[in-house]
Design a protein around this nucleic acid. Sequence first.
DNA 1: TTGACAATTAAGCAAATGCTTAAGTATGCT
DNA 2: AGCATACTTAAGCATTTGCTTAATTGTCAA
Lengths: 126, 126
Amino acid sequence: MLKYALVKHLLNNSYESIDCQYRYFQAIADPTRRAILDRLQQGEQPVKHLAAPFAMSLPAISQHLQVLCAAGLVTQQRRGRERIYRLNPASLQPVSDWVRQYEQFWTAKLDALGQYLEEQHLEEQP
Amino acid sequence: MLKYALVKHLLNNSYESIDCQYRYFQAIADPTRRAILDRLQQGEQPVKHLAAPFAMSLPAISQHLQVLCAAGLVTQQRRGRERIYRLNPASLQPVSDWVRQYEQFWTAKLDALGQYLEEQHLEEQP
DNA sequence: TTGACAATTAAGCAAATGCTTAAGTATGCT
DNA sequence: AGCATACTTAAGCATTTGCTTAATTGTCAA
């Protein structure tokens, strides 16, 4: 299927280096950068438009965008004298995987607790 | 309050983010702290045992544990002269939610792309 | 009580981070 | 060509971060 081939391709590209996880987590640690990512969900945008709502200089935003770019969370494209930024959607996969691993952990714990409580309950009702 | 902290606080408020999110993302941004969380998946542990594999002083680990505690990712309990740390599993929910929001975004994009490509394909085969 | 152990708190330092302003680089328009 | 626009790069600064060592707190055990 076309879709899954594409996903695979994107995933392979974003998984390459060892320290990629480090950059991802580092990149999303900053609230301004998370806000930028939020804004980009509304669609691709040039820097000027992207920077508008922030009480911050353009270079500051530019630097944030470079961090996001280096982490692979965002891609860049020249259009005339503008630079269009857009989300690189599959790039959050490592973070997603990491979180899911913990979800498994705690649902397992809760299941175990639930089972224990049920057993206790049964013992109380002979 | 200090300058950057204030700016960040204001940004967070104007951008719907909550203050707790800041601490979560900040806490998991550090690789040592992520490694500590990984280790804690094997079960609750006293600081000494937890610190063993790290080439780092005990106070350093202690400080990391405090950051994790403040973010609510981990809880602490005294047992004799040891302090037992354990995962606070549900605490990753905000991060999980945040990631899931992007997953929705990118699966939607990929679905749209897949559909478009399939339509193209059909048109090519009359 | 004394001493060992487990861990935290305190103080200090180098490096990283997030911002600023000023200068530089493309690109488009007239 | 000349000038404005859209950004980026560079340099510099204050704050934060992640560590260190030394001192402190609390608990156990003889």
